[in-house]
Design a protein around this nucleic acid. Structure first.
Lengths: 187, 187
DNA sequence: GCTGCCTAGTCAATGATATGACTACTCCTA
DNA sequence: TAGGAGTAGTCATATCATTGACTAGGCAGC
């Protein structure tokens, strides 16, 4: 029930079309909430019917027309209600961890390979987050920005994503090294 | 499609009933895969029909009879296939992060309250993980256990869970402190 | 002139998850 | 002696999420 709130939160910093939102949910917001385009279009339609966002058509010559959406006052009120509702913690849900859980009874080689691959992609994500953080804080240093900058919400969520991927990387490296040391013949 | 593999992985270290599995998915496995009892019973029925697990009835006097399940060779093969299938990374999906993303346009007080609450529950989870880790490694120290112990899979996944909750706690504390400092009048 | 990619959005179908209620029996406590 | 908590499992349903295919025009490269 929180995709709607994620959409509202994303629309807080500007007018976006469904297509643009899909991009955002693929890079920055995917950090804590991923959604495919179809979900977004469906959710946008519902939000508009309920008056939480309003859309306006933009006619374009050289490419398909689009509809840009903004949050209404009702939408902002809905977000405020959401923020005041106790949220329950949701934990990790990860195939790779299921594999590691079972690794003692399986051939460790493919699991090790996946751990090493994941460590690389996690490291790449850390760098992406670092660039996003730099862009968000502009020419201020982190401490000053967090104290005085406007819109620190996106910065804070980005920080959380960075830490998550950093931990992911470290853990994958450690697990892969351990499994490799224990099974020196395979892989 | 990976609940089935999580169930198979959980059944690797013994015979369990649906009810017992529900407990396991509520504490240790919830770490990386949560499921409600109804899902488990449905999945167990499917897995048995497909011959990946086999159940045996245990008749009890003073409480309801139960069915205990074990993984078959076919089930082990299914797990091996799963472990060799490339898995895509899945990230955090968390209501609290949606709230923080939007916090600049809302009253920060309820968000700060939730962050502080979450920091406490995360700290409690860290302690639970610490006890689980201690129990898993018995009287060995961590380094020795990881080098020589049998069944390090559950230990590694538990380590990942611990790190996740530790990061969660640190981030919640930091975010709450920052927001509090920026809005000294509310909350 | 063909192929592939980008923008913009839609339809349909299946699979996974969440929610709530319900049976039935036992033990313990107030 | 009634109520609550624990064990063991089931049913129904509504919403969410995932997958794949599909329209349609424009632009760039080979």
């Amino acid at each position: 029930m929180a995709l709607r709130h994620a959409v509202l939160a994303a629309l807080l910093d500007g007018e976006y079309s469904g297509y643009q939102l899909a991009k955002i949910f693929d890079v920055s917001l995917s950090n804590f909430w991923y959604a495919v385009p179809q979900q977004l279009y469906a959710e946008l339609a519902k939000l508009e019917r309920e008056g939480l966002i309003s859309g306006r058509q933009v006619i374009q010559r050289d490419r398909p027309n689009k509809r840009l959406f903004t949050v209404t006052d009702a939408g902002l009120a809905e977000l405020a209600t959401f923020a005041a509702t106790p949220s329950k913690p949701s934990s990790i849900r990860e195939d790779l961890l299921v594999m590691v859980q079972a690794v003692d009874r399986l051939d460790p080689a493919p699991v090790i390979a996946q751990l090493e691959e994941r460590a690389v992609t996690a490291a790449a994500k850390v760098e992406i987050f670092d660039r996003m953080l730099q862009r968000l804080r502009g020419d201020l240093d982190e401490e000053t920005f967090l104290r005085e900058g406007d819109r620190i919400g996106p910065y804070l969520t980005c920080l959380r994503g960075r830490r998550f991927e950093q931990e992911n990387r470290d853990w994958c490296d450690q697990a892969a090294a351990l499994l490799r040391a224990r099974a020196p013949l395979s892989g």
